[in-house]
Nucleic acid binder design. Structure first.
Length: 425
RNA sequence: GUGGCCGUAGCUCAGUUGGCAGAGCGUCAGGUUGUGGCCCUGAAUGUCGCGGGUUCAAGUCCCGUCGGUCACCCCA
């Protein structure tokens, strides 16, 4: 077991082969899909002024109160590692002024929240998010949800469920919260201890308490939307109609609550059955933010990548690795070894993955290395081949060996050529 | 921040009422002086997470601590 100093910090992980292949795959897939919807990437700093997050997420939210990594730099400025992606993007949009008024932006990268790790939750975790700035129409909300579901499905997740709700406009939320609170106060004694506390701290959270007795009380309440203005309700109706037009299956969940203050109107979550207690793999909503005196409206989402990968592993178990389009050179003797180095470079410049054991090892060991690397072909160059002026090409999957001169060897390698040098399963 | 379970070889794990540190897989070498995968033989690899305590003796018992995992709070 490695000593402590070799381990990453709690809740942080080194991502490497073989899992990294799945990360690269979903990222590549996502960029492709996002561009089809007209979104372009923005990479904002991981470190921002603390104030940005306090102002945009809300200073009473748990994320701000107890989950942010915050510290002072040498000049005494208060900074924070970003706990989510929207705030940074909004700062960027505010800085661009009118140039960004209809921007469609996406981001992908690490976020930080100082919490106890558990299934699908890390202290450094990764989100893919997209924001449609401006777009003040319910159809924009629906289109963004369609995009989000499209992304998840493109990764192979077929069991996602979309739950949507409305938060109403600013005054609606305050009204609803007050009225729900009054109704629940009458039944205070029947609620679980957590919910009794929530009555004071976060009333809406009572609505999705898992305690059966609380759920029973909640189910007897009028739906949250009944406390909303007519405007909020008709906005939600319009979102639903657009979702139907976009062929996005969804469920209205009047008790759905989301934790960040900047949301108004539509909010939603996407869940997946493989996640256990933390079954939301993605969420989103419409928001109105005020950054440096500029009001920015938009609609956006975030997808938790760790959680998506957990779900993906459950839906699509790892298939046994195929042979890679990789050529392995096996050399006997110094001269063959040097020829090997030359041949390798020549193949690599043609776009073919090629390797050999650069330390001198037995042929048996070289073949074993080729097999372990899942190489497709082995090219053998030994005393006999030097003498005959040929190369021996062995196809590892079949064991078939052929004697070829250099031009015909290169000819046989042609199908392995590829424009990029990335090896994907 | 709170609680349950866990921490022994690169990996997965066994280790009895406290008494010599183990297995499987993997790695390396040989069986085959030029051939991988299957088979056979052999070898290497350990601050038993870390620190303290009890004891003639601690992987084992006690305390602390770090980490993992699951759950709570909350969230992606």
């Amino acid at each position: 077991m490695a000593s402590e100093e070799f381990q990453p910090l709690q809740g942080m992980a080194d991502l490497a082969a073989p899992e990294i292949a799945r990360w690269q795959h979903i990222e590549a897939q996502a960029r492709n899909v996002l561009s089809r919807y007209g979104f372009s990437e923005v990479r904002t700093p991981i470190l921002e002024r603390l104030e940005l997050f306090v102002r945009s997420l809300g200073d009473e939210t748990d994320v701000v109160q107890k989950e942010m990594y915050q510290f002072e730099d040498r000049g005494g400025r208060k900074l924070a590692l970003r706990p989510e992606g929207t705030a940074g993007v909004m700062r960027y949009v505010a800085a661009r002024g009118q140039d960004a008024q209809d921007a469609r932006l996406y981001y992908i990268g690490p976020m930080f929240r100082s919490e106890r790790p558990q299934a699908g939750r890390r202290r450094q975790f990764h989100q893919l998010g997209a924001e449609a700035i401006g777009a003040a129409h319910p159809a924009a909300d629906a289109e963004v949800i369609a995009l989000q579901l499209h992304l998840l499905q493109s990764w192979g997740l077929s069991q996602c469920r979309v739950h949507i709700n409305t938060r109403g406009l600013g005054t609606d939320r305050v009204n609803a919260q007050q009225q729900i609170r009054e109704l629940l106060l009458a039944k205070r004694e029947l609620l679980c201890v957590d919910c009794q506390r929530r009555l004071d701290t976060n009333v809406l959270r009572v609505l999705d308490c898992k305690n059966p007795e609380c759920a029973r009380i909640v189910s007897a309440l009028p739906p949250l939307t009944s406390f909303m203005s007519a405007e909020a309700r008709s906005y939600l109706d319009e979102v639903c109609r657009s979702l139907t037009a976009l062929e996005v299956p969804f469920e209205l969940r009047p008790n759905l609550v989301r934790g960040l203050d900047y949301y108004q109107h539509t909010v939603w979550e996407i869940t997946h059955p493989a996640l256990g207690a933390q079954d939301a793999i993605a969420g989103g909503g419409r928001y109105l933010l005020n950054i440096g005196g500029r009001a920015i409206e938009g609609v956006g989402f975030a997808i938790g990548l760790e959680r998506s990968l957990v779900a993906l592993a459950a839906e699509r178990p790892e298939s046994p690795p195929d042979r890679l389009p990789l050529v392995w050179f096996v050399a006997q003797g110094e001269r063959a070894h040097e020829e090997g180095l030359r041949l390798l470079q020549s193949l690599r410049w043609r776009g073919i993955a090629a390797q050999m054991c650069v330390d001198r090892r037995s042929m048996k060991a070289q073949f074993r290395a080729a097999d372990r690397a899942k190489a497709m072909f082995v090219v053998v160059r030994g005393d006999a081949e030097l003498e005959k002026g040929i190369f021996l090409l062995k196809t590892l999957a079949t064991g078939v060996q052929e004697e070829l001169d250099l031009p015909s060897l290169m000819d046989r390698m042609k199908p392995l050529e590829r424009g990029d040098a990335v090896l994907l399963r």
